[in-house]
Design a protein around this nucleic acid. Structure first.
Lengths: 241, 241
DNA sequence: CGGTGAATTGATGTCAGTCAAGGAGGGTGG
DNA sequence: CCACCCTCCTTGACTGACATCAATTCACCG
């Protein structure tokens, strides 16, 4: 049933750096099982100290925070290959919650084994830190988007990031990829209202750049989106746990 | 001239977790020197692959990103004890620039020794990851602020975070601490215009919550600020490199 | 077949941006 | 030693991007 790390379909993808054979077999020992959840399931809770950490095998989700006033900020979209629970594993608690937006399949690790990784597998510990740095890098960009870009550029930025990640994990087929979220999710990720997000998406659709309906995102003009967003690069590959 | 890690004044502060004796002596070997810079100096550049990493001993600074359009987003304020250059040390390049806002004194480490830390000192490698997680946690909160809070709450949030960090590193004296920044810096950190930031600060000053002038921040009512900001907790201690 | 949630679109309101002008301090050079 | 300039802070008036309110449609579902 459970995939062995040796056969992990993610590892070969463009988006991930390579792993030596003994690292792979170590990961296979580190892996304690697999978990399947339905759309809507909460995987990790903000403030909690989860006993388990996950790597996403399949499906998508959301990282989000709730303010005391009940507002929601979507911190990031979760893709296959993402590592969930690093904060809980390192600090005492998660800084955000994680929720499934589609059915998901996840590799499960034990939190207490994290220390083993650091003690026995410095390369893997390094990659863990790397993963944290990638997330930090992304959040810096997101912050810049909310702080400096207008609604149109913000939505375009989000779509380019999503498209790039989708392509990196092999979800893109003829410029189209699954995107099982609601407009409210995108709105909450950009600090915009649903209404304005909707109108902005309409503008981008009309401009022939991208369209999103029925859980699929179709990218018609990635270059155009990137220009509109003020994005020039794309991010390099990342490690996979 | 240079402080030995054994005598590091930061280590004893409330804001930092304790370090075992042999960790301290390891850090002293890891440390390759000290650097003093003037206000305005650029320590690290976005996109660069710096050969050196720093821990701030004294002084304050800014982490910021520039958009292709020339807008600036201040990503975080830099305090004593902050570790600079982690992204460059782990990924190939920095995601943001770092600039001194006051004269600063820094411990210098060699980028290439990072790997030694992971190989020989798993506890210290763990703390490095922890530091990354702390920054990620902070950025998630900042993102939530820009996305969900109005200008008044945003400014109040920033001030509470600054006050807490200031207190943690022993800069707070009778509710007042050095804060050598310009209003433009705070504005750029919150995605607000300077004008509106100024007006919001005036409101907060009039309300008797805090006042900021001549490079010093005076906190009159921290509880009130936290309420206004919608902040309930404060962050725990962090590791020190 | 009523009920609920998501997308869509138009009308109206407001928070924060932009423009503009003045004052205070600090550095510099005549 | 004072005139000039620059940067930063401050305040008022106007403007605009995005929020809020509201109504309609559609799909799904018990």
């Amino acid at each position: 049933m459970a995939v062995k790390c040796e056969n992990c379909p993610l590892r070969k993808l463009d988006g991930f750096i390579e792993m030596k054979r003994d690292e792979v077999s170590f990961m296979n020992r580190f892996k304690s099982g697999e978990l399947s959840v339905e759309a809507g399931a909460t995987l990790l809770m903000e403030g909690s100290n989860a006993p388990q950490l996950y790597t996403v095998l399949e499906g998508m989700g959301l990282r989000y925070k709730l303010t005391p006033e009940g507002e929601r900020q979507v911190v990031n979209f979760v893709f296959p290959g993402d590592f969930l629970g690093l904060q809980a594993g390192i600090m005492k608690e998660m800084g955000h919650s994680v929720e499934a937006a589609s059915p998901m399949r996840l590799c499960v690790f034990n939190r207490r084994d994290i220390w083993t990784v650091f003690r026995e597998r410095p390369e893997r510990a390094f990659d863990l830190t790397w993963l944290g740095a990638v997330e930090e890098h992304f959040l810096g960009e997101a912050l810049t988007t909310l702080g400096q870009r207008d609604a149109t550029a913000s939505v375009a930025w989000a779509l380019t990031r999503i498209a790039h990640r989708g392509a990196d994990v092999g979800l893109m087929e003829n410029g189209s990829m699954p995107f099982p979220f609601r407009q409210r999710d995108l709105a909450d990720s950009l600090g915009l209202s649903v209404v304005h997000t909707n109108k902005t998406l309409a503008k981008i659709r009309t401009a022939g750049l991208a369209s999103w309906s029925d859980g699929r995102l179709l990218i018609r003009d990635l270059k155009g989106l990137m220009t509109l967003a003020g994005v020039e690069d794309r991010q390099g590959p990342r490690p996979l746990m």
